[in-house]
Design a protein around this nucleic acid. Structure first.
Lengths: 366, 366
DNA sequence: GTGAAAGCGCTAACAT
DNA sequence: ATGTTAGCGCTTTCAC
């Protein structure tokens, strides 16, 4: 390719000059609007010149002119985590369906997300599972948060996890468990606080004993935490509890591992449960009783709500107030335009599998 | 917020008018270049007017003027698959380190990727695991492909998987296995063809018998395929092989499940191996002997090579040929500028865990 | 300290 | 069938 190498990328003007045509002809050819308007020979000449220069139309200039499709940014803390990947997938599908472009931002703190928003032409933000305590996003960008406390009047979609967790504790109770452990996540977000509250409440209501431990959300951390938990024995070298309720499927697998290392069998010696229902849950033996969290649906629902806010009414409101100098006074309240029902909850569903069973007899086994 | 609602987004001009200043002052304020140049009062007035109008600077216009940071697009077929997520993560990290922005494209076919490339201002493409047979990307965008046949002179980074697989088969051989099954992926990409070739060659070399089956890359498909494989029994209701080599960890879990359903114990009755070394591999019992595929490293290496091609030399070549009319003649060869060593291979490593053991005695167990 | 003016590369009327 | 022209919204000298 003919490398101009004067440091700047070739423009349609350069192509026009090389091809011996005007710049607008180049534009016509590259937009595909050339059929019937530009001659065969000319088109070929343009394409040829473009190839030789390595010309690529400047997308920024094009968008500045025509106004590109709307873009929404989806922020998740960790795309390797299958749960977030599913949320992203669901949100992305809903966005595309509505004709929106999607950009992904993998970022833990809100400030970095804000930077990404400023750097690109973002029309709205869908933020998943952000740490508590962040301010909303000082920019006036419509946003909805997923799986987190709604920062202001921002709109949120979360799981309604308490009923399923109550049901889960009740299942354990009916199986005969009277003392359980709760392996919690160290992460301090709203959803995990809610899980703790739900488990605590359900136990209290049934008069069940309950001990705690917290762990990082990975296999190694979970194994370690679970090991410590199981070692806190009191009755003849066996733990004081007969079931472990975990905040996440990964934690449950850690418990499996720790139990196994101690010669405890799941579910015979120890019942275990998780939350999430990822692939792991059916890969392990016995398969894990868990609470299904439909991630795709969370993402899709959030995205639909966000888009609904972006497109105020059914049609385009033909009313125009061409006087831009008018005042409105009140700007303190509802900067984002609070719509009805800020804060939707999606049902979580208990999935019963083989990891829960009646507790073993006091007689030591093995 | 004072909603102008004439259909168009407010511009810096609108803000200027409302604030009673000139447009360039608004620009100064919004770039933060205002300190010492614009008065306190004026700044406040500008910010205020902006807030009331809901003004957000147009990123496209800004980039058109200033020339934004370079962007590279990373294309993967499925972001929920943890392997691709890891590749993306590695590539993204390498890109950011070099000051590049990253956009993700989750797309199976190359044409959709091309559309994404055209829609945004993309300077380069990193494409992972694309289906065979696609043309390179007709646009003159520098690209490198990951885990796939390099389409042209495009540059590629792949795993060198054959040595580890040979080592794996050899391990099985030394443990006493003489007849194995190979559970392959249905997906017909270069990497899976190579896996088959490596396994076949290693078996042939050692005079081991080998049967085949193919499966979709998910748990259900794998369970089914593995079930069929195990049912193809010949000697007293037991399969004719004593080990199953799988193209992917997920397939291995399917074999675990199918074996379990038939009362076969892993590794006692059946040795099983995988490829990938995802979380699943250590979650199952016994832990899976597998071939580790460092996804992050694949992504990072590919991205570094791509960026190296984007930045030709150490410094900026001050030489300028201001005559744009000059010809160069040859454009047929090396359109992308083939650099040394198109086609890097990253080592894959055998990880031995508990799922491989000597085959059981002919005497039926259980 | 603030404003006027010249583009960035492209598109879309409107001429020719 | 092709060329001319006027911007899109912003940044950035250079005057005042």
């Amino acid at each position: 390719m003919l490398c101009v190498s004067n440091g700047k990328a070739p423009t349609s003007h350069d192509v026009a000059r090389l091809a011996g045509v005007s710049q607008s002809t180049v534009s016509l050819v590259f937009r595909g609007a050339a059929s019937g308007r530009v001659g065969e020979r000319t088109q070929r000449a343009v394409l040829d010149a473009a190839r030789r220069l390595g010309f690529r139309p400047n997308a920024d200039a094009r968008r500045l002119r025509v106004g590109g499709p709307r873009m929404v940014l989806i922020a998740v803390p960790d795309i390797v985590n299958p749960f977030f990947a599913r949320v992203f997938t669901g949100a992305r599908a809903a966005a595309r369906e509505a004709g929106y472009q999607v950009v992904l931002s993998v970022q833990r703190d809100l400030d970095s997300v804000a930077a990404d928003v400023a750097g690109q032409q973002i029309d709205a933000v869908l933020a998943c599972s952000l740490q508590d305590g962040g301010r909303p996003l000082e920019e006036p960008v419509p946003a909805v948060v997923l799986d987190a406390e709604p920062p202001q009047g921002q709109g949120s979609v979360r799981f309604d996890i308490a009923p399923a967790l109550t049901e889960l504790v009740d299942l354990l109770y009916r199986l005969g468990h009277r003392s359980i452990a709760h392996l919690r996540s160290e992460v301090r977000t709203a959803t995990f606080r809610e899980r703790t509250e739900a488990v605590d409440a359900a136990c209290a209501q049934r008069g069940m004993r309950r001990v705690h431990a917290a762990s990082a959300l990975d296999l190694d951390g979970a194994r370690e935490a679970a090991g410590a938990l199981l070692s806190s024995a009191d009755s003849g070298g066996r733990p004081s509890f007969t079931a472990v309720v975990c905040d996440d499927d990964v934690l449950s697998v850690g418990v499996y591992k720790a139990a196994q290392a101690r010669g405890l069998s799941v579910p015979h010696d120890l019942s275990v449960t998780g939350i999430d229902n990822v692939d792991l849950a059916t890969a392990v033996t016995p398969e894990l009783t868990t609470v299904d969290l439909p991630g795709e649906e969370l993402g899709a629902t959030g995205m639909r709500r966000l888009i609904a806010r972006l497109e105020p009414r059914g049609g385009a409101p033909a009313e125009a107030a061409p006087d831009p100098g008018r005042q409105d006074g009140e700007s303190a309240d509802g900067a984002g335009g609070a719509d009805s029902g800020v804060g939707v909850r999606l049902p979580a569903r208990l999935v019963i599998r083989g990891s829960t069973a009646p507790p073993a007899d006091p007689a030591p086994r093995r």
